[in-house]
């Protein structure tokens, strides 16, 4: 089914994040084969060139490996996946802090809140 995209960021970045998210959540497993570029484009309802860029970037991030004549697969290297996981965590936390700081909350306040919420 065609997916919706946020208006303020490139579509290829949003697709990369979705795939990374799926890998971290385990919706896509290490060693799984990704659909062909065209199948992926059809499914997401986006330009084929956008998907080509997504696949190229994923490979540069070491999240995928391309096997000649067979297609693109999620890496089975656990270090690479852990690295993506750390990056994603960092990114989400940074965004979270930016929003809270823009609203005038202090970091100490946030930490207190997180400890309360996390400890429940």
């Amino acid at each position: 089914m065609t997916q919706d995209f946020m208006k303020d960021r490139p579509i290829y970045l949003q697709l990369i994040e979705r795939i990374c998210g799926d890998v971290i959540k385990g919706n896509i497993q290490p060693g799984d084969k990704l659909p062909s570029v065209r199948e992926f484009a059809l499914d997401a309802g986006v330009n084929v060139n956008t998907v080509q860029r997504v696949y190229k970037e994923l490979e540069m991030m070491n999240l995928t490996e391309t096997k000649r004549g067979q297609g693109t697969f999620i890496t089975t290297n656990d270090d690479s996946i852990q690295h993506i996981r750390e990056q994603m965590k960092e990114q989400v936390a940074t965004q979270f802090i930016t929003v809270l700081e823009s609203l005038g909350f202090s970091v100490t306040e946030i930490i207190d809140l997180l400890q309360k919420k996390g400890g429940k």
């Binding site: 303020d8 960021r9 490139p10 956008t50």
Partner: peptide, 15 residues
């Protein structure tokens, strides 16, 4: 380029 518009201006083609 539509992705460049999003990247550089943080807005979609309509905006």
């Amino acid at each position: 380029n539509v992705e460049l518009i999003r990247d550089e201006r943080g807005e979609d083609a309509v905006q």
